[in-house]
Amino acid sequence: MAGAALILRRLAQIAITLAILSFAAYMLIGLMPGDPIDLALIGDPRLTAGDAARLRALHGLDQPLLARYAAWAASVLRGEFGYSRLFAVPVADVLWPALRSSLALLGGALAIAATGGVALGVLAAARPRSAGFVDAIAVIGQAMPSFWLGILLIILFAVTLGWLPAGGSAEDGGSALRFLVLPVATLAIANVAAYARHTAAAMTATLTEPWIRTARAKGASRTRVLWRHAFPNAAVPILTLAALDAGALVSGAVVTETLFARPGMGKLIFDAIMGNDYNLALVALLLVALVTMLATLAADLAQRALDPRLA
């Protein structure tokens, strides 16, 4: 019963956060100097100041920012997300392909990072002598700027060895997997550290608990103790981490996407913001925030289920 009330309260909080975020983001984009027509002026030397004034009036950019936000919010509440200014098509038409691309990229990377990180973390906890090695991997993986790592991987595997494509995505039904290897590796290496650390810390703590010793004393095998007894207890912080990463699934990774020429949500949001494409930028931002908050909520509920003390 308390659970349902909690969910309702959290959902209400999420709705309020989204409303505040949309307002803040709209105002911030409005605070960026120049408007879309100024951007067009830079691109087309033949545009005159008269053309600019005409286009500004046509696109409603001569209205005050608050009025434009109100109009935008009203149409969103009616379920109309409008057209992307940059691409001149409905927002959803640009959003879905980008979202699919990002889901493939980040889904792959985070799955590998989570399994690899958990394996490394368990290894470090179970065999303390390997902890230094796991630490080194975690520290270095986390410390490399992602575009530096990406360029190094491209130089090695695409240009020098020629094993994998340097970027882009599959066409003509070719194997999409080959194109995913390098960008997924770049992101996975950067993300594996967090999982390894959290797992190692939680597992080390759990393995000293008295009931683990009891399980060992009862003759449970080492592997069984590790995975069946200790791991479920260490899973809570890992779950929290995964929930925080769920937002990344839909927010994409702008640096990796740019470097590997894979248009995804990160690049799309970046371009939309820089191009003053309000409709696209806001819908994308709100989608990312919504997914992150729902994932956090799901993680909280799962934690309660796993750990009765929290309920």
Partner: peptide, 13 residues
């Protein structure tokens, strides 16, 4: 390919 280093890499690859 917006990044010119990546563009060069794709040409070389």
């Amino acid at each position: 390919v917006e990044n010119t280093a990546a563009l060069e890499a794709q040409l070389l690859a």
